[in-house]
């Protein structure tokens, strides 16, 4: 069984490193981009199995990236899970409207739960 490719676009290095370790331990193929623009491009080129998208980022924020991803034929099929600490229902609704496949609150899900959630979404 091939490892699933997870692409994380997250500007915080602390968290990105943590998730990398986490998912790697759980046998995922993991890539991280700290810059939203770079990340966006890489999704197009790498075509991961799932995109984990932070919302609060400089330049392009997560929702904007989501919009672009879902607008692009090449990338709109890829499931996108918002991974954020923003618990605002409006934002959540917005994300869902824009086509997000999941909304995960970082601090509410402990690491195991996070992995479980992602695994579920991959199916």
């Amino acid at each position: 069984m091939t490892k699933k490719k997870i692409h994380l676009i997250e500007d915080d290095p602390l968290l990105s490193r943590m998730y990398e370790r986490l998912f790697t331990i759980h046998d995922f193929d993991f890539m991280v981009d700290l810059d939203s623009q770079v990340g966006l491009e890489r999704v197009k080129t790498e075509k991961p199995d799932l995109v984990l998208l932070d919302i609060m980022m400089p330049n392009l924020n997560g929702l904007e990236v989501l919009k672009l991803l879902k607008a692009d034929d090449a990338t709109k099929a890829i499931p996108v899970v918002m991974i954020t600490n923003v618990e605002d229902d409006d934002t959540q609704k917005q994300a869902e409207e824009l086509g997000a496949d999941g909304y995960l609150i970082k601090s509410r899900f402990d690491p195991d739960e996070t992995v479980e959630y992602v695994t579920k979404k991959l199916k």
Binding site: D12, L15, R17, M18, I25, N85, S107, P111, D112
Partner: peptide, 14 residues
Amino acid sequence: LRTPLTAIRGDAAV
């Protein structure tokens, strides 16, 4: 507040 805490937790788990 939560970002570093999440990181701590995650790292601890790892």
